[in-house]
Design a protein around this nucleic acid. Structure first.
Length: 484
RNA sequence: GACCCCAUCGUCUAGCCAGGUCUAGGACACCAGCCUUUCACGCUGGCGACACGGGUUCAAAUCCCGUUGGGGUCACCA
């Protein structure tokens, strides 16, 4: 009998929950469900600098919202735990030692400075990049002595210097690499934490993962991973590298050019089943080419071998259309229910109400006054556009300011609330020597489409990061087409 | 630059593996029309693609090679 199928999604909690995570999760989920196997959620938080619990919580939320339930994970437990890599340090250390013992890995004492120099030399010589293997020749005893003495070091994988590494990818067939081309990957960092490569392989094995379905960007590290499996003497899982979601210009999808946070889709009124349905369409077609289907139907019909390889361009317009189809399929009662869960939840209304309270004279005023709190994208009437440019600035300059405000000030905010937003915007204004007047009105218009609104920071706090970000980006597009 | 991956309408794709049924099918978007007090939905129609060059073959979108183009990776990030 075939081994039970076990798949996993292994996100890194370093930012907003990403649409690419949902995409990969969907295919993993489908394969596991369709075969009566398990779908595992593992948190890859070995980058202590960038990982944070808030991001992890958001990933849980987003995946739950989509309905991609996992059988094992940090929050639900399971037989292969812990499911957070930061809690598995001893396991990696142990395995790294095994590799040193068997000669498949070695300690490296080279400093970052030397590595930087090396890279610079290689770049100047137009040679290939990569570690030169200097510490490979240090004797085992000496290496052990230096480690015991507390000398800073990393542990590197000793790649073979010749031969080919051939790997089978479910979608592409055999992919081969010359071993010389592959760098001696760092497996354990000087802080003692493993890198992705070690932790990922060790965990996939220990957690019994049978099918590694992940994004195409990992293909180039495949030989390292295969080498690790071999070094440990472990059986290889089935590898399946999914095409990357793309921007309209075909580059890897990015927040500069697309809303990539799942929070955006939820906030902007997309149905989880529509988002999933759309993602499934990126690379997969139903046997009868039907475009609208449920998660259950997808699970039933999914065939990993049928995924098409061209990198699909993420097309918000088609998602909107599909979402409309799903909306129309809802009964009035269900639609009401959905509205009550999202746009018109008591919780949300209670946030908006205080901001409108003293500004309305009749109950009916509320609807028109607070309109921009309930829509996705906002209109920018002609009359308001010129005011979206701060005094003494040109539209292109303003667009650039918005962009930098996003990237430097707003994007990094994980805990989005009045205080953090205000601080970010005021800091930004200071740093770029912009007066509040020059910056605040344009931002206000960008995020609301209006000149008259409740307090800017209160408003932005209630709108949420995703809507603000999206509207700022839309405003930038308009600014770029405006005459000075 | 090196290595790897990919290549059908503007976009998502079917067809390709098992070559003829392909004057290449569907969907989004766009255009026109129908329905309708309006809008939307819905329906009908239109526009629109096998990247290029060589092979193999009676026959190539389908197989092979090359070119071009696009993408990814080259971190003590994942």
């Amino acid at each position: 009998m075939a081994k039970a199928v076990r798949t996993r999604i292994a996100p890194s909690p370093t930012g907003d929950p990403h649409v690419g995570t949902a995409y990969v999760a969907l295919f993993n989920y489908a394969l596991a469900r369709q075969n009566g196997g398990q779908f595992v959620l593992r948190i890859e938080d070995t980058d202590r600098q960038r990982s944070n619990p808030e991001s992890e919580a958001q990933i849980f939320d987003a995946l739950r919202w989509l309905g991609l339930d996992w059988d094992e994970g940090p929050d639900v437990g399971g037989p292969c735990g812990p499911y957070r890599q930061s809690e598995r340090s001893e396991i990696y250390t142990e395995h790294a030692e095994m590799l040193i013992e068997s000669g498949h890995a070695y300690p490296c004492f080279c400093t970052r400075e030397r590595l930087a120099e090396l890279r610079a030399e290689q770049k100047a010589a137009k040679g290939r990049f990569g570690y030169d293997g200097r510490c490979r020749s240090i004797g085992k005893d000496e290496a052990a002595r230096r480690r015991a003495a507390g000398e800073a070091h990393v542990i590197r994988l000793a790649m073979p210097s010749d031969g080919e590494i051939v790997v089978e990818d479910l979608l592409r067939g055999e992919v081969s690499f010359e071993a010389v081309q592959i760098d001696d990957q760092v497996l354990v960092k000087s802080d003692g934490y493993p890198t992705y490569h070690l932790a990922n392989v060790v965990d996939d094995h220990l957690m019994g993962i049978t099918h590694v379905i992940r994004a195409e960007e990992w293909i180039s590290s495949l030989p390292k991973h295969v080498r690790l499996y071999e070094a440990f003497g472990w059986e290889l899982p089935v590898f399946c590298h999914l095409p990357l979601l793309r921007n309209a210009d075909k580059s890897k999808i990015s927040k500069r050019k697309n809303p990539v946070s799942l929070n955006y889709y939820r906030r902007a009124g997309f149905l989880p089943e529509a988002v999933l349905n759309y993602l499934a369409l990126m690379g997969f077609a139903m046997p009868d080419e039907r475009e609208e289907f449920s998660l259950a139907e997808f699970v039933e019909a999914f065939d990993p071998a049928k995924i098409s390889l061209g990198g699909p361009v993420f097309d918000l317009e088609k998602l909107v259309w599909l979402n409309g189809k799903h909306i129309r399929d809802l009964s009035p009662e269900d639609l009401l229910q959905r509205l009550r869960e999202e746009q018109l939840s008591d919780e949300y209304l209670l946030k908006v109400l205080p901001l409108a309270h003293e500004r309305i004279d009749t109950l009916a005023d509320f609807v028109s006054y607070a309109e921009f709190f309930f829509v996705g994208d906002v209109d920018y009437p002609e009359a308001v556009r010129s005011k979206m440019v701060g005094k003494g600035l040109t539209p292109p300059q303003m667009a650039k300011i918005f962009r930098r405000l996003l990237e430097e000030g707003l994007d990094p905010i994980l805990d989005w609330k009045i205080e953090t937003v205000e601080e970010a915007i005021r800091d930004f204004a200071d740093r770029h020597e912009l007066s509040p007047k020059q910056l605040f009105m344009p931002v206000r218009i960008a995020v609301t489409g209006r000149t008259a609104t409740p307090g800017l920071f209160d408003t932005m706090a209630v709108l949420g990061k995703e809507l603000c970000r999206r509207r700022l980006r839309c405003a930038m597009d308009i600014l770029r087409t405006m005459k000075a």
